[in-house]
Design a binder for these strands. Structure first.
Length: 133
DNA sequence: CGGGTTTGACCAGCGC
DNA sequence: GCGCTGGTCAAACCCG
């Protein structure tokens, strides 16, 4: 799983913005990978003709940012709810969650094993709360 | 005092 | 069937 990211995917492009980060943020090279549709979602063993599947559109947005800090200030409040070590990288992976009311967005932060100077920030879900910005 | 952070343990899914 | 990885939650602690 997630052994390697799409090295050169068509969806990869330079992401510019978030310049309001007064932290050590180097918007030098950022790749953006968006997957709004469930990858191996598929059908559930045969029928499931029931429909009414309130499947939340879990939008997966991954950002590779060259930064020394893993917590970039995007204007949302994140609460760390777990830490796990990755086998692929000697660095631990941090799990964050939006502490805003009604916001069920999850954030995954991991350091690049090949380039520890890079940070992988993956957003899971969409914000459902007015940005305090 | 509140909220945020931390570590460990547990659980589920999948692979072998 | 067992083992492993990834992911989540809870309790306790620390800081502002």
């Amino acid at each position: 799983m997630m052994d390697g990211w799409p090295p050169e995917d068509d969806r990869s492009f330079i992401f510019s913005g978030h310049a309001h980060n007064h932290l050590r943020y180097h918007a030098n090279q950022v790749h953006d990978y968006v997957d709004a549709s469930s990858s191996h979602d598929g059908v559930r063993s045969g029928d499931n003709s029931g429909g009414q599947e309130t499947r939340q559109v879990r939008e997966r947005v991954a950002f590779r940012t060259k930064s020394e800090v893993e917590i970039l200030h995007d204007g949302f409040k994140w609460k760390k709810y777990g830490k796990k070590t990755v086998k692929n990288s000697p660095n631990p992976r941090n799990y964050y969650r939006c502490s805003v009311n009604g916001c069920s967005v999850k954030k995954r932060v991991e350091r690049d094993g090949d380039d520890p100077s890079f940070v992988i920030t993956t957003y899971d879900g969409i914000h459902n709360h007015p940005s305090p910005n």
